[in-house]
Amino acid sequence: MNVDSVPTLTWVLVALAVLALAALVTFVVLRLRRRGAAPLPPSSSGTGAGSGREGDGEGAVGTLPRPGGPGDGATVEPATPQFQVPETVGSRLVRLRSRLARSGALGQALLSVLGRDHLDEAAWEELEETLLQADLGIDPTTALLAELRTRIRVDGTKDPVAIREVLRELLLAQVDPSMDRTIASAPVLGADGEPHPATILMVGVNGTGKTTTVGKLARLLVAEDKDVVLGAADTFRAAAADQLATWGARVGVDVVRSEKDGADPASVAHDAVEAGFRSGADVVIIDTAGRLQNKAGLMDELGKIVRVASRPAPIAESLLVLDATTGQNGLRQARVFAEVAHLTGIVLTKLDGSAKGGIVVAVQRELGIPVKLVGLGEGPDDLAPFDPESFVDALLG
Rank of each mutant, 00 (worst) to 15 (best):
G215P: 03
L217E: 10
L217C: 09
A218P: 11
A218Y: 07
R219G: 13
R219F: 08
D225K: 14
V229R: 04
L230K: 11
A233V: 05
D234G: 01
T235R: 02
R237K: 07
A239L: 11
A240Y: 00
L244K: 05
A245F: 06
A245M: 09
A245H: 06
W247E: 12
G248P: 05
R250D: 13
V251Y: 06
V255G: 09
V256F: 09
V256Y: 08
S258I: 01
K260Q: 15
D261S: 15
G262F: 08
A263L: 03
A263W: 01
V268N: 03
V268L: 03
A269T: 11
H270N: 14
D271K: 14
V273P: 05
V273F: 09
V273E: 11
E274L: 15
A275Q: 15
A275Y: 11
R278E: 14
A281D: 10
I285H: 08
D287V: 01
T288W: 05
A289K: 02
A289Y: 00
A289V: 03
R291W: 00
K295R: 13
K295M: 01
L298W: 00
M299W: 04
G303H: 12
K304A: 12
R307V: 12
P312R: 12
I315M: 09
I315T: 13
E317N: 13
V321Y: 06
L322Q: 06
